[in-house]
């Protein structure tokens, strides 16, 4: 079996004295959509933010244990190099308001002073926007500000911005929670396309969404990883009572 792209070993995360993620062990494989679900406050977002080391930006935050990206300990890498390899899409679309659509897609390069020639720039913008299923809608308005787009379009722009950096992994933190149902469906469809090239880790509080889009599902409860299994198996034959209770709606 091929080496997992991401391995999590005995991992803990704290905010001050509050332990938010407890002893997580997990191996994730390439080109799959992995859903991380669980009730509010179960530590799923914190866990996600540990994978690109955004968690440590909060004062008082700390972690213990290992996360290996292709065998390399991410806590021994520079956070900057790590974040170039692990992209992130947030709950609310957050395109840069002072940049055009074109600049937003290239933001990772522009802000890091990575020089590109004009042809490369245009190629990256077009292919990223195509992969994000936004190209047809914005190709004539690339010089407009990104904030003029609708919420769903803005979120796809943020996906384009993340994949323009050609990351190994794309983290998605409830990317549809601020969107209407049609935009949500659009993004979900897009995830299926994206997994051909990337490994996607999707945090969602929406069970149906996890069931619809993911290949594997991790169920978090009170900071613990209760169960991790292929999605179909987890939803049809959960091994843990807590998982069973959650998916049958006995608590949320």
């Amino acid at each position: 079996m091929e080496r997992p792209i991401l391995e999590v070993k005995d991992f803990h995360a704290w905010f001050g004295t509050h332990e938010v993620v407890r002893n997580v062990n997990l191996s994730l494989h390439r080109n799959r959509v992995i859903a991380v679900m669980g009730p509010s406050g179960c530590g799923k977002t914190t866990f996600l933010r540990c994978i690109n080391r955004m968690h440590e930006l909060t004062p008082g935050a700390r972690t213990e244990g290992q996360i290996l990206l292709e065998g390399e300990d991410i806590y021994r890498m520079s956070p900057i190099m790590l974040r170039l390899r692990v992209g992130m899409v947030f709950q609310r679309p957050n395109p840069f308001p002072h940049m055009t659509i074109y600049e937003n897609v290239l933001a990772g390069y522009l802000l890091n002073n990575i020089k590109l020639n004009r042809n490369d720039k245009e190629a990256i913008v077009e292919s990223s926007l195509r992969k994000a299923a936004l190209w047809e809608e914005v190709k004539d308005n690339l010089k407009k500000k990104g904030t003029f787009l609708s919420g769903g379009q803005q979120q796809r722009l943020c996906i384009a911005r993340a994949i323009a950096m050609k990351p190994d992994i794309l983290l998605l933190d409830e990317p549809t929670s601020a969107l209407d149902p049609i935009s949500t469906a659009g993004i979900e469809e897009l995830l299926q396309e994206l997994k051909k090239n990337y490994t996607l880790i999707l945090v969602t509080h929406n069970m149906q969404q996890a069931a619809r889009v993911s290949d594997d599902t991790a169920f978090f409860y009170m900071g613990e990883l209760v169960e991790f299994a292929p999605t179909r198996q987890l939803f049809t034959a959960p091994q843990d009572q807590r998982t069973q209770n959650y998916i049958t709606g006995r608590f949320s």
Binding site: N52, M54, L57, P79, I80, M81, L82, R83, L84, G87, M88, F90, R92, N94, P95, F96, P97, H98, A107, G108, L110, L111, N112, N113, C158, R161, A162, M165
Partner: peptide
């Protein structure tokens, strides 16, 4: 907003560049 600061940091942009190229222009 914090969300824009995070957008920049999550792209691997160092803190001081986030300040100069995102916070100040905005």
């Amino acid at each position: 907003p914090t969300s824009l600061r995070e957008a920049s940091l999550a792209l691997g942009v160092p803190y001081y560049k986030t300040i100069i190229k995102v916070l100040l222009p905005c």
